[in-house]
């Protein structure tokens, strides 16, 4: 696996945050690698296991449990729309539909487990219906990559998509 020196340095530094047990670094390492690679392949999981002196299963069980880790590549921009109550009351189900329609993506089936996001054919966007993003007062909310958007109506959604073209 090709890990740039700079990233590996960052990884090594991160491991020092856990002087008692290297195993604690599994979440931060997976975050760093997912940021770089887009998702966690089994090859990546193996790499993390080696780095932290763990068995591959110790990493795989993490990847499969935590909703933020993806086992398949997302689009170039990954959209997360909040599904939970306050957002739903403010129209997030419709927001999800609008975004899917405008970005030409199939609507994700909120199955909850595995990788419930869908990717558009051109690979530009992927979209996921997620649980409460803790901004219920400005519902409905969504995220694009690490950017956060509040009170998103249809016009705002169109503008957001435009921004990431």
């Amino acid at each position: 696996m090709d890990i740039p020196a700079e990233l590996e340095q960052k990884i090594d530094e991160t491991i020092t945050h856990y002087p008692v047990s290297k195993r604690s670094a599994v979440l931060p390492l997976l975050h760093l690698l997912q940021e770089h690679l887009g998702y966690i392949s089994s090859e990546t999981a193996d790499w993390v296991a080696k780095k932290l002196d763990l068995q591959p299963i110790n990493v795989l069980e993490i990847v499969t449990f935590y909703p933020m880790f993806r086992a398949a590549p997302p689009g170039r921009h990954h959209i997360r729309v909040c599904r939970t109550l306050s957002c739903a009351m403010a129209g997030s189900y419709k927001l999800l539909n609008d975004l899917c329609e405008m970005a030409h993506i199939e609507r994700p089936q909120h199955a909850g487990h595995g990788t419930p996001f869908t990717v558009g054919e051109d690979g530009k966007f992927s979209i996921e219906f997620v649980e409460c993003l803790a901004s219920c007062g400005t519902a409905p909310v969504c995220m694009v990559n690490d950017d956060f958007y509040e009170g998103v109506n249809k016009e705002a959604a169109a503008e957001i998509l435009q921004k990431y073209q």
């Binding site: 932290l52 069980e61 449990f65 935590y66 909703p67 880790f69």
Partner: peptide, 20 residues
């Protein structure tokens, strides 16, 4: 990484130990 159960303090501790 997106799991509500990590708000439970002992779940959080397990998570911080690098486990489910």
């Amino acid at each position: 990484a997106g799991a509500y159960i990590c708000g439970e303090e002992t779940g959080l501790i397990e998570s911080l130990e690098g486990k489910r």
